[in-house]
């Protein structure tokens, strides 16, 4: 069976990988699982992963999506890499503050800010 189309848009800025979501709603369990698997592959293939995940296009996300982000963060840390989140709108940011995940993740206003902080 052919692979499902990617749910991510990926760019490289020197050694930083910038990931954006294609979906506006990161709710559906099957999509979230696929997103997790795609990002895990990126982490596995990187020597020292430096990732920026941008929420530019995201209007909704669920606790399952938060769970996947936590798993991604744990995988990045295991490889001594860094993960930063960016472009989170007010409503989505509230979900992070309610769950106190704004303390766990490093969050920047823009992708450019996050990329700059990760660039060596």
């Amino acid at each position: 069976m052919p692979d499902a189309p990617s749910r991510l848009m990926i760019q490289k800025d020197v050694d930083v990988t910038i990931i954006e979501f294609i979906d506006r709603n990161i709710l559906d369990e099957a999509n979230i699982q696929q997103i997790g698997e795609e990002i895990t592959k990126i982490i596995e293939s990187a020597g020292l992963p430096k990732l920026v995940i941008s929420f530019e296009n995201v209007d909704h996300l669920s606790s399952a999506a938060l769970g996947t982000l936590i798993t991604i963060n744990n995988e990045v840390r295991k490889k001594n890499g860094q993960l930063r989140l960016a472009n989170i709108n007010k409503q989505i940011f509230e979900v992070f503050t309610i769950t106190k995940l704004d303390k766990l993740f490093q969050i920047d206003k823009t992708t450019a800010d996050a990329t700059k902080k990760l660039s060596s």
């Binding site: 606790s63 996947t68 106190k100």
Partner: peptide, 21 residues
Amino acid sequence: DCTADENIERPSGRGVMLMNA
């Protein structure tokens, strides 16, 4: 409590909390 320091890195257990919030 998924906001407790010892549970903050657990990937599940936030659904009911969000419903309440």
